[in-house]
Amino acid sequence: MTDVRPPLPPFTEESAREKVQLAEDAWNTRDPEKVSLAYTVDSEWRNRDVFVHGRDEIVAFLTEKWRRELDYRLRKELWAYTDRRIAVRFEYEFHDAEGQWFRAYGNENWEFDDDGLMRERFASINDLAILPEDRRVAPLD
């Protein structure tokens, strides 16, 4: 049985925006298993300088990420789209175990299969240390 994750390609502006919002909502759960289900079983990622292959590695990567990046909160914005590709820009904020807050800025390029699962995700990300009072992304709690 094949997993299907609407909206499906080919994307319109409306369906691309919906796909971006669904991704933002899923990542903000900080649930690696849930997030991994939006990707093909053999999905390919580049996240900064880390290369991830398949759902099992996605779960392991996200588990470790959210163990280090505490109170993580993400915002994504549609940048561009084609029939089966979406580009987003994003920012997220988190703090480390010592209480230092960071804002990460970046861009992602996504490619989807016919069932709406992401088969490729390439992310370029830069971090900036910030003061707690400079946070822009509202906390979830």
Rank of each mutant, 00 (worst) to 15 (best):
Asp96Ser: 12
Phe112Gln: 00
Trp110Lys: 05
Asp25Trp: 08
Asp49Ile: 12
Lys34Gln: 04
Trp79Pro: 14
Arg121Lys: 07
Val20Arg: 04
Arg89Ala: 11
Glu18Leu: 13
Glu57Gln: 09
Thr40Gly: 03
Gln100Pro: 05
Val59Arg: 06
Ala16Ser: 08
Ala129Phe: 13
Phe51Trp: 07
Asp31Gly: 06
Arg67Ile: 02
Ala26His: 00
Glu111Asp: 04
Asn107Arg: 09
Ala87Glu: 03
Glu91Ala: 05
Asp49Ser: 11
Asn28Asp: 02
Asn28Pro: 05
Phe51Glu: 05
Ala123Asn: 01
Asn126Met: 08
Pro139Cys: 08
Phe102Val: 07
Glu33His: 05
Phe51Tyr: 13
Glu69Cys: 12
His95Asn: 08
Arg136Asn: 15
Leu140Thr: 11
Tyr81Glu: 09
Glu111Leu: 00
Glu98Gln: 00
Val35Lys: 01
Asp113Leu: 06
Arg68Pro: 11
Ile58Tyr: 00
Glu93Tyr: 05
Asn109Phe: 10
Phe90Arg: 04
Arg5Phe: 01
Glu77Phe: 03
Pro6Gln: 01
Ser43Gly: 15
Thr40Gln: 02
Asn28Tyr: 00
Asp31Lys: 04
Phe51Gln: 04
Asp49Cys: 06
Asp3Trp: 12
Ser124Glu: 15
Glu77Val: 01
Lys19Gln: 08
Leu22Lys: 12
His53Met: 14
Ile58Lys: 04
Ile58Phe: 00
Asp56Trp: 10
Leu78Cys: 03
Phe122Arg: 10
Glu14Tyr: 05
Phe112Asn: 01
Asn109Cys: 01
Asp127Val: 14
Asp141Gln: 10
His53Glu: 11
